[in-house]
Design a binder for these strands. Structure first.
Lengths: 127, 127
DNA sequence: TTTAGTACCTTGTGTTACATAGTACTAAAT
DNA sequence: ATTTAGTACTATGTAACACAAGGTACTAAA
């Protein structure tokens, strides 16, 4: 079997940080979208703007399928509303079930944060 | 076009919370693994145990490909070491590049936490 | 020599975010 | 009246990823 120190593909490795940041965002999007909708009904473009405010950039190709998925599982409803400055807007709204689900997600989130921070803290001295 | 309130597939929706919790874990695993290795070299089974301690359950099928990926991008190295109680262990070790990358990941993580918490806070009153 | 325990590895699958491209509606400009 | 710009929603294809499930291999005790 023999010893072997890593030799293959030492390709940079640090410029991957940007993509890993994107990777970490995955999974919390649902939480953020439901949170935003708990503040009041909103249409997709509005949601994107609100996420941008908190440095969570999301594009249409991500948001629309996600909203449809949340709607199909009964967490969101929607209504059409006319606009004076373009095509009609699809206002999404949190359902009762969605609100309850949001509470659970928030709990999961805070538990995750605690777990990760605990892991990080232990290593802080050794870097 | 006409108004339309959601009617289709109101299938539960709340028991999805467990799977969404799993979903949120995605992306932070890399961060946690690198953090653990910053405390000292470790072999996969050991890493799984340490993650379990902080409530972050990960299975082998997840960990092994991830470690290989991190090794192939130069963030980790490894060495084989004999064991008196079973087959040899593959001890992974954080490289210089890996340590630098870890710092960036930790920054991204704290920024993400802040962003998500900011979004959540705004909605806390309305639930 | 069988059994239990430990450890590492591979393959296949479903989910998901994103890139890209397209459709459609309104209002202002030519 | 037709074009152009701005806003908004939708669909398709792709790559990354976690996980389930099954497999190999080594050691030590029964």
């Amino acid at each position: 079997m023999g010893n072997s120190e890593n030799t293959e593909k030492p390709d940079g490795g640090v410029e991957r940080a940007a993509s890993a940041q994107a990777q970490m965002r995955k999974g919390v999007l649902e939480l953020c979208i439901l949170s935003i909708l708990s503040q009041g009904d909103a249409y997709p473009t509005e949601i994107i703007d609100k996420l941008k405010d908190t440095k969570l950039v999301v594009v249409e190709g991500t948001l629309y399928p996600l909203l449809t998925r949340l709607k199909n599982t009964g967490l969101l409803g929607y209504r059409w509303e006319e606009s004076t400055s373009g095509p009609p807007r699809k206002y999404y709204k949190l359902t009762e079930i969605g609100a309850q689900y949001l509470k659970e997600l928030q709990l999961s989130w805070s538990e995750l944060v605690e777990a990760v921070n605990k892991t990080i803290e232990k290593g802080k001295n050794n870097i």
